[in-house]
């Protein structure tokens, strides 16, 4: 099976064409957010307030980097456990989120919401933070800077290696 090269943000058709087990290289921009940022986003949603980012059609990478050295856009940057975001994810998917990058298992509710919304969940290799850091060419903090490593970022990636773990047709690797 040859590896696919795809662009971010994901278009609807590409997202639906991906199958669990496929190796994919991501190119383009995505958001970075983990536990604390998700909690804040959900609080805004519950209060029916506007979000600081537009998640429609976007991909979120569950990650909290180590500090960057001078001359580098970001420090070590591997995935964190996606399951901790499960509580928030179905709502975000129903609001238009299309892709997620993390590691580990997802809940049945998330897998259902992936099917319902034509979305996709990728895993990056857990514990390969140095290698993945080198595939990130730009990084900018968008909001929640007070959260330190948990701030929301926008990053640009080049040939960022992931594997499709959960697809729109119900395919699931674990």
């Amino acid at each position: 099976m040859s590896d696919k090269i795809i662009n971010l943000p994901l278009d609807a058709e590409t997202a639906k064409s991906l199958k669990a087990g496929e190796y994919v290289y991501l190119n383009g921009e995505m958001y970075v957010a983990r536990d604390a940022a998700h909690k804040r986003l959900m609080e805004l949603i519950e209060e029916k307030k506007e979000l600081p980012i537009n998640i429609k059609g976007e991909t979120i990478y569950y990650m909290g980097p180590s500090p960057e050295r001078e001359g580098r856009p970001i420090g070590s940057a591997g995935p964190t456990t996606a399951g901790r975001m499960d509580k928030y994810t179905p709502t975000l998917l129903d609001m238009g989120l299309r892709g997620m990058v993390g590691k580990g298992k997802r809940s049945p509710e998330v897998l259902e919401a992936i099917k319902r919304n034509g979305a996709v969940y990728f895993a990056a290799v857990g514990g390969a933070g140095a290698l993945l850091s080198k595939r990130i060419t730009e990084s900018e903090i968008i909001c929640y800077e007070d959260l330190g490593a948990e701030a929301i970022r926008r990053i640009k990636v080049e040939n960022f290696p992931v594997i499709v773990v959960a697809d729109h047709n119900g395919g699931y690797m674990y």
Partner: peptide, 21 residues
């Protein structure tokens, strides 16, 4: 293979092996 490469990059480029230090 990726993990072995990761260990080499961590050492040569001084990027922590994993972001969860």
């Amino acid at each position: 293979g990726q993990l072995m490469e990761n260990l080499e990059i961590a050492k040569s480029d001084m990027i922590p092996i994993c972001q969860d230090t």
